[in-house]
Each structure stands twice: as C-alpha cells, then as structure tokens.
C-alpha cells in the first residue's frame, strides 16, 4: 500500500488505514534519530518549501529536520521575509514558488482554508501545517503516535481535550483522528470556549475539569491564547487557571496511568502547573520527538516511498 493523495489538508478526509500507514511508517523511520549519521537518501533531489506565514518555531523546525534527515533540499519562507507583506496575494506567492518547481509545499497560515486554496491551484503536493482554527493534521498524527507508543494501542482509550476548543486546530484534528481510530473523546472548558454543535463531531462535553479527567486515559491540555481572551470570553486568567488549570492535586482524582499531553508551547501556571508539565505523567517532549518522525513519514510517503 502506498500514499495516494496529492495533498494532506485534513485528518477529517483520511481513512483509518491511511492514518495507520502514516503511524507505522513513522515508527520505522523514528530510529534515524538515534543514528550517528542522521541522514537517509530517500528524498535526495526533492525540494520541500516550508511556507510559514504565522510565527512558529516548533512545527517549522520539525518539518525542516524531517526533510533534512531524508536528504531533501528544504527552503524556509516565513511571514516576515515573504512578499505576502508587500501586498502580493497568497496565490501569487504560491504560484511564484511553484515556478521554482518544488515537490512539496508545507504551509502554515493564520486563516482557515488557506491550505485548500493552495492545493486547488498548485500542481505540487501541499501539506497543511496548521490553517487558522481549522486543522493541524501532523499534530494529530504525532499525538496518536505518542499515545500508541505509550499505551500499546488506541482502540477504546478515553481522551479528554481541555481548553479553548473553539479556536483550536489541534483539537479539531485530534477529534477526527482519535474517533477514526476507535477512541472516545470528551472536550472540556468554559462554555464560551466550546464551539456550537460540537457534539455533532461525535464528542462529549464536560463543564468541569474534575468530571472530565476522572476516567481519562489521556488528558490533552490546549494552549490558551490568553492575550485575546480576557474580557467577553473569560473574566480573568486567574479564574481560568483556578477552574481549568491542571495541578497535581486535581490529578489525584484521575487514573494512575494517565498521559498528560500538550501541543506546546505551555503557558506554565495557566493551563498546567510546572509540576504537571515536568512530572511523571507528562509526555510533552516525546510528542516533540514524534513530530519529526511523523513528518518524515509523511514526506517520505508523499515522495513515493512504500508504506509500512
């Protein structure tokens, strides 16, 4: 079985078998990270453009390392240095990039649907590295890989995603991915941060953290974009962290084998206390490590590599 899609825009559109192929391939490529010489020739002669029109360190670096370990030529174009700031439209920028014959364009963009816009008009492959509040497919893949590594399986596990669900592309991609692989998902947070009709995505909603984490196998805390929050959505950060911040004390109500995840970067002391972020349940750094693995898998499969 091989990869058949031109682009990866959403987890929603993927079949479970495609997700599993990506995870299996990532697992087998992960070992490259432990080598003395971290390089395989799989993507030699291929060009990957990272078009990052929104600030990002983690995801861009992760894609860059993934491409380089596979021997691709990786070019980074970022928002501040790009011509997007000079009045050129996204489509203009993309078509100019395409004229230089890249094989894969990875796009991060502050607006939902930007990756779709690119994919419709470019012949090369497009990877969505996060489009507004819509989706962040490789984040869900790295999260699923991390959970499977730690738990040995995915089917039947209970995950709870806590925080600003309404504005989270991480939540959306994980909801689809987890559901497709047989997990149950609960979203939790203040009602002002829970999007309408979210139940129709096949998730439960909890309105207290205690209720949400009681029998959860996985607790995924989202980053609170607190700079735009206080006012109409939240009374104060203090109250948010009191009601929704994860502390060791609140975790006592949870399972002993719970995994604590966070897509980063963590607002320490807001969505979780430092003791939780650095504590024994936390797999936050494993998530980062697995990020490189799933991105290698995706680039490898898109460039024509055989799936595992």
């Amino acid at each position: 079985m091989g990869w058949r899609r031109k682009d990866l825009l959403t987890i929603r559109e993927l079949e479970p078998a495609e997700i599993l192929m990506l995870l299996d391939t990532a697992e087998s490529l992960k070992e490259i990270a432990t080598r003395e010489i971290k390089k395989v020739p799989a993507l030699r002669g291929k060009t990957v453009v990272n078009l990052f029109l929104e600030p990002s360190t983690r995801t861009r670096t992760s894609f860059e390392i993934a491409g380089k370990w596979l021997s691709a030529d990786v070019i980074n174009v970022s928002g501040s240095s790009s011509s997007v700031m000079k009045g050129e439209t996204l489509l203009d920028t993309a078509k100019n990039l395409e004229a230089m014959s890249p094989d894969i364009v990875v796009i991060r963009h502050p607006h939902a649907g930007a990756a779709h816009l690119l994919a419709r008009s470019l012949r090369c492959s497009v990877i969505n590295a996060g489009d507004g509040a819509h989706e962040h497919p490789t984040q869900a893949l790295l999260d699923l890989l991390t959970i499977r590594e730690k738990k040995g399986h995915l089917e039947g596990l209970k995950a709870v995603i806590v925080g600003d669900i309404a504005r989270s592309r991480v939540a959306r991609s994980n909801i689809w991915g987890m559901r497709k692989l047989g997990m149950t998902v609960t979203v939790a947070g203040p009602p002002t941060l829970i999007p309408p009709h979210v139940g129709e995505l096949g998730v439960k909603v909890a309105y207290t953290l205690e209720e949400a984490i009681r029998d959860a196998d996985i607790i995924m805390m989202l980053r609170l974009q607190h700079e735009r929050m206080t006012g109409a959505l939240l009374p104060s950060l203090r109250e948010y962290s009191r009601l929704w911040g994860l502390t060791l004390e609140k975790l006592r109500e949870g399972r002993d084998d719970v995994l604590i995840m966070h897509p980063g970067p963590v607002n320490r002391g807001i969505e979780m206390s430092p003791e939780v972020a650095d504590g024994p349940y936390s797999v936050i750094l494993e998530q980062v490590t697995n990020g490189v693995a799933v991105r290698m898998a995706l680039l490898y499969l898109m460039a024509g590599g055989k799936g595992q």
Partner: peptide
Amino acid sequence: EGVVSTELGLRG
C-alpha cells in the same frame, strides 16, 4: 454559526 463553522474553524 453551526456545525460547519465548528468543523472548519471559521468564525460564525
């Protein structure tokens, strides 16, 4: 504002 805005992450 409805299930589609929730899915697409567009403001409703």
